[in-house]
Design a protein around this nucleic acid. Structure first.
Length: 473
RNA sequence: CGGGACGUAGCGUAGUUUGGUAGCGCAUCCGGCUGGGGGCCGGAAGGUCGUCGGUUCAAAUCCGGCCGUCCCGACCA
């Protein structure tokens, strides 16, 4: 199979990588996907890193139901307005029409906060720091595997706090210590962190924070969000606690999530014309061994191969011992599937006391002496993880611009050049003007804006902050 | 939901203009030779031509409805 070049047809490239690497495929219900073993293994590695960090910051996991009475959704005005068009509704069950329709959760604020009403009575019950791993359904008009599917897997954290500053700090901590840390350390993808403009905010949120990553076509992908919800949900679901001063008070909320969309980001941030390039921390197989032999050498080679796998200890090693494919076929296939290191082991190598090692990220191939293999592989995996991050960072730097005029801003955004930064006065009119002209949106605003950022690149009046615009997924 | 393209074996496709027994490549299965960058030879199996209806002696082919996929919009936490 010939993969289209990224530069020629990025969407076709993406789709064929997803299918060719056997990550996922479309399923029967519109917009839904089957995640295949290799794709799911990547998701499990992602989950492990996120879950570990969520727990390390004091949160516990819970599970709330998939089905939510429709009336619950209606209680928070912004929320219902934002989600109603995307909600799937169950109207029948047990062979008859339901008295009250049930919605399939598009997110769980409603069911969770209606339950928190029972759990939160006193300031001693706070903070309540819970998270769940779940599937949600949003009836999107246009879907793409991993990036936007009608059903997707995610984690959603829902916390309740005594004070606003505490909740705001929680939302920021999750953004920085869980999401940014996971994506930069595990995915080897640099992210911008910041606030969303009012237009891009989560329905029902007071502040939405996000991490944004650059894909190799210059578009931005929102890779994770963390919301400060204020007291909106507490009031909508009548959650009150008796405070330290003996008065009834409403708690302050956050919610935050990352989803299987991250797999799409992983593909598009690192992939090249040969396919996937997986960072070692998330790769289901960190090393693939392709044995090379004629019949007479088979026993010797395979015996060495198993011994070598043993010697690599904790490294996740796949031995591709399929008889039906020749080495060249396997090389291409594992490159498409993004395995960081390939070891070629044949009689010639064994005689020389070495193996051939191929690095997926750089395409370099060089021999490694058997006696130092274990440390060399460990070192190489570390180096690949670092070097993928560095090259993604370099790519982002090369594709980040600071235009001097509105016309230049429009040109850069229209040609999907990458991230485009400029002063913004904070007015929705200027934001809309750029969007109408170029389809690009403000992806992030600084977490802590400076006092002044020159003039608004759109209208020329005093800028209150530095905005980063981009085309986005 | 609007505009465009498409739907033929597991995958990719030819055939549709001009209606007349559905073909090719890859993959699969069997046998053999092979094996350091997508092997070769021989044999085999695999098809409600997306679906429903219409026109016709005859429909993959013409007409209509529906379903689905992809691209571009609208929408999108």
């Amino acid at each position: 199979m010939a993969l289209p070049k990224q530069s020629e047809d990025f969407p076709a490239w993406y789709q064929q990588v997803v299918k060719g690497a056997e990550l996922a495929e479309n399923s029967l219900a519109r917009g839904s996907m089957v995640i295949r073993p290799y794709g799911y293994a990547i998701w499990e590695a992602i989950q492990a890193g996120v879950d570990r960090r969520i727990k390390a910051t004091g949160h516990s996991n819970v599970y709330f139901p998939l089905l939510i009475p429709q009336s619950l959704l209606d209680k928070e005005a912004d929320h219902v307005e934002g989600f109603a068009p995307q909600v799937a509704v169950v109207t029948h069950g047990g062979g008859s029409k339901l008295e009250e329709p049930l919605i399939i959760r598009p997110t769980s604020e409603t069911i969770i906060w209606s339950t928190y009403a029972k759990w939160i009575q006193s300031y001693r019950d706070l903070p309540l720091l819970l998270n769940q791993w779940a599937n949600v359904v949003r009836w999107e008009m246009r879907t793409r595997l991993f990036l936007r599917t009608s059903e997707f897997l995610w984690q959603e954290g829902h916390t309740a706090h005594e004070t606003a500053p505490e909740a705001i700090e929680e939302a920021r901590m999750i953004l920085m210590d869980v999401y940014r840390a996971t994506v930069e350390e595990d995915f080897a993808i640099p992210v911008l962190t910041g606030r969303k403009s009012a237009a891009e905010r989560f329905p029902g949120a007071i502040e939405t924070l996000a991490i944004e990553a650059m894909m190799r076509d210059g578009k931005a992908l929102q890779a994770g969000t963390s919301h400060y919800l204020g007291q909106n949900f507490a009031k909508a679901y009548d959650v009150q606690f008796l405070g330290r001063e003996g008065k009834q008070e409403y708690p302050f909320a956050t919610s935050w999530g990352v989803s299987t969309r991250l797999v799409g980001g992983l593909i598009m941030a690192h992939g090249d014309d040969k396919g996937l390039r997986l960072p070692p921390k998330l790769a289901p197989f960190q090393v693939v061994i392709v044995p090379i032999y004629r019949d007479d050498a088979k026993a010797t080679v395979m015996e060495a191969v198993y011994r070598i796998k043993q010697s690599l200890g904790d490294v996740r090693v796949k031995i591709d011992d399929r008889e039906e494919h020749r080495p060249g076929y396997k090389f291409n296939e594992w490159e498409l599937r993004g395995v960081p290191i390939r070891l070629e082991i044949g009689p010639r190598d064994l005689e020389a006391g070495q193996v051939m090692a191929y690095r997926r990220d750089t395409g370099e191939k060089a021999p490694i002496a058997l006696e130092s293999l274990s440390s060399a592989i460990a070192e190489m995996l570390t180096d690949i993880q670092k070097s993928l991050f560095q090259s993604a960072l370099d790519f982002r730097t090369e594709h980040t611009f600071s235009p001097g005029s509105y016309d230049e801003l429009v040109d850069l955004l229209s040609s999907v050049a990458g991230f485009v930064q400029g002063g913004w006065c904070g007015s929705p009119e200027c934001e809309t003007k750029v969007k109408d002209r170029t389809k690009a949106t403000i992806r992030v605003l600084p977490l802590d804006p400076a006092d002044r950022e020159g003039n608004c690149i759109v209208c020329g009046s005093a800028a209150t902050e530095l905005a980063t615009w981009a085309q986005s997924y």
